[in-house]
């Protein structure tokens, strides 16, 4: 649940062009602190581009982004506020999970004892303790994903960006990640969650935004998006998603916002 009204992520009129191709077309976001924000959209809609811009890893063609009040261009100040788990886990296969996490803790300037305590706790929580000294090259996809998730939260970030964190995981590992997302949100962390797995969004998100062809076409709490998106009687988030990403004519009941998306 959102804990305050302060915006953890504030993006204004983001545009991104690659030559003549438009990847993002005027996306604006204002996500309160402590919110779990489900970021949906079909393949190629611009979700990963948005996440890279919000984490400062890519520059928008125009528009501004502030995370926790920090301009994302100021990477030195931004780094301690954000954790980012990209779709492909950024791990070094030559390291063991423990080495990887200790390395990241070192780069994050986390004090030794604190780092050791957190690493042990997270390894235990994510059932990686027994395999902590094995090389990551020998890990399963789920183990790699859990290790990458732990490294993205090791410094206790204010805002957590997760790109498809449960994709391809078995139900047990997926549930573990889902529970962690909720635990972090309860502790006040803002979670920006991009995924195709709509039940995950339904289970954890306070708010959803739907990106379609580079534009934010719908935004609001999941129930509201579902009920207002002219989806008939069944009324699932999946129906709403299909409705708002099929060209936009089905979303007639939605209220138009300044940014062009339908705020419901």
């Amino acid at each position: 649940m959102p804990s305050t009204n302060t915006a953890a992520i504030e993006a204004d009129d983001l545009r991104k062009r690659y030559g003549s191709e438009v990847a993002l077309d005027g996306v604006s976001l204002s996500i309160p602190t402590g919110t779990v924000y489900g970021f949906l959209g079909p393949n190629g809609a611009g979700k990963t581009t948005t996440m890279r811009i919000l984490t400062g890893l890519s520059r928008p063609s125009s528009g501004t982004v502030r995370v926790c009040g920090v301009d994302v261009a100021d990477r030195r100040a931004l780094a301690r506020h954000v954790g980012y788990l990209p779709e492909t886990p950024p791990l070094y296969e030559e390291f063991s999970a423990r080495e990887q996490l200790e390395y990241v803790a070192d780069l994050r300037d986390i004090a030794g004892e604190v780092a050791d305590e957190r690493i042990d706790r997270y390894l235990a929580e994510f059932e990686l303790l027994d395999d902590a000294d094995r090389r990551i090259s020998e890990y399963s996809k789920g183990m790699k994903q859990k290790t990458a998730f732990v490294q993205s939260v090791l410094h206790d970030p204010d805002v957590l960006f997760l790109d498809e964190p449960t994709s391809g995981l078995d139900p047990r590992a997926a549930r573990r990640i889902r529970e962690s997302i909720l635990a972090f949100a309860d502790a006040g962390t803002t979670v920006f969650l991009s995924t195709h797995i709509l039940p995950v969004v339904e289970a954890v998100a306070d708010e959803v935004g739907v990106l379609y062809e580079g534009r934010l076409v719908a935004e609001g709490p999941p129930d509201a998006v579902t009920s207002r998106a002219a989806t008939g009687d069944s009324g699932s988030l999946e129906d709403a998603f299909l409705a708002v990403t099929s060209g936009g004519e089905d979303v007639v009941d939605a209220e138009e916002t300044d940014s062009g998306s339908e705020r419901v």
Binding site: A79, P90, L91, Y92, L107, R108
Partner: peptide, 13 residues
């Protein structure tokens, strides 16, 4: 760098 998302979101370039 390899795993550039990790390094570039963690330390200064």
């Amino acid at each position: 760098p390899e795993a550039e998302e990790l390094l570039l979101s963690t330390v200064h370039p």
